[in-house]
Amino acid sequence: MPDLYDAILNGQATAAAEATREALAGGAAALELVHSQMVPAMDEVGRRYECEDYFVPELLLAARAMKAALALLRPLLAASGAEPAGRVVIGTVKGDLHDIGKNIVAAMLEGAGFEVADLGADVAPQAFVDAVSAESAQLVCLSALLTVTMPAMKTTVEALAAAGLRGRVKVMVGGAPVTQRYADEIGADGYGENAAAAVAVARLLVAE
């Protein structure tokens, strides 16, 4: 029986759930499992992606294994009153249907201990505003895969400002055509070049 770390790294969902159950039965604390196994495993997944060892299928499989474990851990974490690493709202902006990249970032953030509200794809600016208020999110992540839908990121940032939320929520943007320069241009606080980088930037933004 592999431990949770290996099960996530190898993308084995059943084994990850099994390992989690076993560890809990053996007396491990949920938060301890998150910090000693899940977060390091997802960090390693991100590292392997960055050095081109892992590709999209491996990322998604690892995310699935992580989620299988998290499904068991979440009720325990909530009951123990453990604080997440941060609260995040994420979505693909209005007009854009691509959500595989966004799903990967959402999973990586979840794997890093963040609480993530995923709004899906083709999300209107107002829906982001509503979710940020409702979730009292510290970070909102906007994804776009088409140059033609990138302007919706700007509209969303403006809508957050108009709703008076820019003071308390940080904005991170990402997606294939998005650049640091564009992030700066529209007044976003951060830019995630890929899923692994997004986690690092999210940690920094939430710590600020």
């Binding site: 590709f55 999209v56 299928p57 998604l60 249907l97 691509h98 959500d99 595989i100 799903n103 794809a121």
Partner: peptide, 16 residues
């Protein structure tokens, strides 16, 4: 295609 059920699953399965 993007709105078809199982799009993401199918695409990811076809990457390898």
């Amino acid at each position: 295609l993007a709105s078809e059920a199982g799009f993401e699953e199918t695409f990811v399965n076809c990457l390898a």
